[in-house]
Design a binder for these strands. Structure first.
Lengths: 245, 245
DNA sequence: GTTTATATTGTAAAATTCACACATTTCAAA
DNA sequence: TTTGAAATGTGTGAATTTTACAATATAAAC
């Protein structure tokens, strides 16, 4: 037995089958924009393209595209990433929606910002055919659309996240030296840390696997290479951290 | 001097003015859903309505609506909240977008989930005219659409957030007793905490203002009432918390 | 005034954080 | 091969924070 409700959900008419007629709903253009971070030369970098819009001539833009029919949100972000970098198996997380009515000069477009963390060395960038390139986060001028705001927002998200979750490793090679790890934290957080305490901190976590290998091709004493034990981390992850603000 | 790019942004045609024709873009229905939390009888509650869709008869649903033309995302969430609760000046934050292609039985609808924290006592709920009501989070069965998943997601967000940010106070009266605060943390996190250590923790933060008032209408020794010093918190908020995972 | 229920408070042990300096290893250049 | 440069790797004590734990005080209800 099906019932006809008096008021329709969201104020839209229903059909006899009691399923809302979605095609009568108001619609809006929706895109996904990817903030792809990498770490190189001890600097946090973001993967950008030169805007192909004349009104944004010379300005930098995020990699984005429309969400396709029947496409999962995460899949769309993943598709954009793969199209541009050729990489699969990359960390990706939804960060925030940006929907200011005037954020797009041609009319309203809502965008979902995804943040992606990858290791620049691990992949072959197809920079050849266009202006796709890595840019230092520090000297980013204004960008196309509200993309600067989106980047800032994702950067802030990253700063918080690497303190609470083991995400920094996604930016490093699988095998990394402790000095690289510390450089990464110092660069992203903009602080300087004591080397001994930093190492003790990670040693006490007992989540680093000694690969028994050493750095290669460094012009000084090479450091030991470690891997992060994601499995063990996931297994022992605790819920209660503590009140701390 | 304006240029005609060879490839249009997002694969959509441009006009002579070099501004994309947004009205040629693919579009999708977009809603905002509000997960409104309250705290009552030492339980975390969420404000829900009975679904008015026949296929979801008897199931509970979040409060939501379509995003309007030229409406800011936050404003839309705020509008929904105000329409339903009459409250203004309420904490509200975007949490996550849900866009599974089949999440809506009538066709694709994307929704942006907002989380809102308010004090149940502070407001007069207009429950009279419909089935709007507070429900305990603990015994929530399956809900309309993917709303259970959305609630779970916001609950998890809340559990993490109250440990890192002073959001729990939004759920309490402006003036509260320490026991109420502890009950709130215990209920939301599902842990039990030592009373003395809990109080010492907050005392050491030095962010509680002693109102010099006491609880009223309790059938036992009343506790002191405190206010949280949001101003001082904002002023001294530190960026570096520490690596901890 | 007795009971009941909760508020309030302190201390010692353990764990964690923090500040701080020197010897070692490798590479590169002389 | 010697030497200098540069980065690795490590330990300790002080300070701070966390944790575990129990007795007294206060107000309301009877």
């Amino acid at each position: 037995m099906k019932k006809f409700p008096e008021k329709a959900t969201h104020g839209v008419q229903l059909i006899a089958d009691a399923v809302p007629l979605v095609n009568t709903y108001p619609k809006v253009p929706l895109t996904i924009d990817c903030v792809i971070f990498g770490f190189e030369e001890n600097k946090l970098k973001v993967l950008l393209i030169k805007s192909d819009l004349a009104i944004y001539e010379g300005k930098l833009s995020l990699l984005g595209d429309f969400l396709r029919d029947n496409e999962e949100l995460d899949d769309a972000a993943y598709r954009i990433l793969k199209e541009r970098t050729g990489m699969t198996d990359v960390f990706l997380e939804q960060v925030k929606v940006f929907g200011r009515p005037n954020r797009h000069p041609g009319g309203r477009v809502i965008t979902i910002a995804y943040c992606s963390l990858l290791n620049i060395q691990h992949h072959e960038l197809k920079i050849h055919d266009n202006d796709l390139n890595w840019y230092s986060l520090t000297n980013l001028k204004d960008m196309a659309f509200d993309h600067k705001e989106i980047v800032d927002s994702c950067y802030h998200w990253l700063q918080e996240s690497i303190q609470e979750h083991p995400l920094g490793f996604k930016l490093l090679p699988h095998k990394f030296a402790l000095r690289e790890l510390q450089n990464l934290y110092e660069a992203i957080l903009g602080v300087s840390l004591d080397r001994r305490n930093f190492r003790k901190k990670f040693a006490s976590m007992d989540l680093l696997i000694d690969t028994q290998e050493m750095e290669q091709d460094v012009s000084h004493r090479p450091g030991k290479l470690y891997k992060f034990n994601f499995e063990k981390y996931e297994k022992n992850k605790r819920k209660w951290i503590g009140i701390d603000f």
